[in-house]
């Protein structure tokens, strides 16, 4: 893992040790399995898609960072 950036590393990595991933959960969003995480506003947003269908990654409603209403929790 090497970061290649002209930005100060302290700035980029600030708060890395306070990151909380305990709210991560696997849900189905619009029929596609995804990992969601609670953001600072308490809403859940997509972190990563778990689909193997490449066309799901072109869908505008499933972009990482989109706030979601999950179909059901699994």
């Amino acid at each position: 893992m090497i970061l290649y950036t002209p930005m100060q590393l302290e700035l980029v990595l600030a708060g890395l040790d306070q990151m909380d991933h305990s709210s991560d959960r696997k849900v189905t969003v619009n029929g596609v399995p995804a990992i969601v995480r609670k953001n600072s506003a308490g809403k859940e947003e997509i972190v990563q898609l778990l689909s193997t269908n490449p066309n799901d990654y072109l869908r505008g409603d499933l972009l990482p960072g989109t706030q979601i209403i999950p179909d059901c929790a699994n």
């Binding site: 893992m1 970061l3 950036t5 980029v12 990595l13 600030a14 708060g15 990151m19 991933h21």
Partner: peptide
């Protein structure tokens, strides 16, 4: 922004 790779970057990025 930053190209995020193996490390999940803090939310200010």
């Amino acid at each position: 922004g930053q190209i995020e790779g193996h490390l999940v970057l803090p939310p200010q990025n």
